[in-house]
Amino acid sequence: MSLLEIRNLSVEFETAHGLFRAVDSVDLEIDQGEMAAIVGESGSGKSVSMLALMGLLPWTARITADRMNFDGKDLLTISQKERRKIIGKDISMIFQEPMTSLNPCFTVGYQIMEVIKEHLGGTRKELEARAIELLGLVGIPAPESRLRAFPHQMSGGMNQRVMIAMMIACNPRLLIADEPTTALDVTIQAQILELLQDLQHKRGMALVLITHDMGVVAETAEVVNVQYAGQQVERQNVVDLFAKPQHPYTYALLSALPERATGKRLPSIPGVVPGLLDRPTGCLFNPRCQFATDKCRSTPPALHSKVLCHYPLVDGKPTNNHPGVSGPGSSGQGSSGQGSSGQEALGGNV
């Protein structure tokens, strides 16, 4: 049995313009000690799906799921009180902005000891010793003196380490890291990721890493979920995903990696993730997809073999019988990818 199993999770928000579906039938399964990544642009519903799991969404959110099990417990039916015993102890989460995620009015020592006291208890002395141990563990120099420091007296990287210390304080079995390095500068990013990987290996905890950085995914994850506009469009293990992306969105994300760029200009995906008012019909990715066809524009695709696409790529390339691809070969695809795919697709299709 997996440690965490989520089936068909949807999150909707009540807005002035009607319901907005931020997360649309997402599945996630993760085993003890496994490392999964959720990838997608901003607005893909990556964080929202995990916040829904944590129960951290505002009351305006409507969360539905067929199943949301953690360690055999059904998170959908347990009471708030029971959920609070799991959250922060067995499942914990670190966030994007370390500078604002720690309470400015309390010392870091207090904030770490608080969570241990809440879930495990202990005397003040024990709590302090544990907090010092944790601060040392996440690589904070002179942890005894840092105990009485306030968050504003430390750098962003240090604060993120404190955040990690706080969230692993109760030995969680699952840690969710929501873009933990986005707000930090590049040298610190690598250190924090290394720290997370190290902790994951040593403690055998499962780790879900939310990111939009494909480079980070390649270095860390075992399983990758690609999300777009709230939908899970592809799920593969990391080696296959990089070698043979099946969804055009994954393909486009990978093409945008500097390492993979062939021309002088770095390829990008034109347009933005659709919001509440500009949702296209059919496949949600069709306006930005270089291989989109009429069918893509009219009919939403169904999930087949873990890919949400009418015409999944084969071996990382569109197939020859793909109606969205003009010409017999697909070798020239990389360079024509930046052109207006719509016209091209029309030409090939009609």
């Binding site: 102890k89 604002t100 720690l102 309470n103 969570v115």
Partner: peptide
Amino acid sequence: GEDYVRTAKAKGLSPFRIVGIHALRN
């Protein structure tokens, strides 16, 4: 609506602690 209140919730604290300690102090 601040991030650190979300953090307090993520720590599994009781609503009383979240509102009465973490939020009120600020």
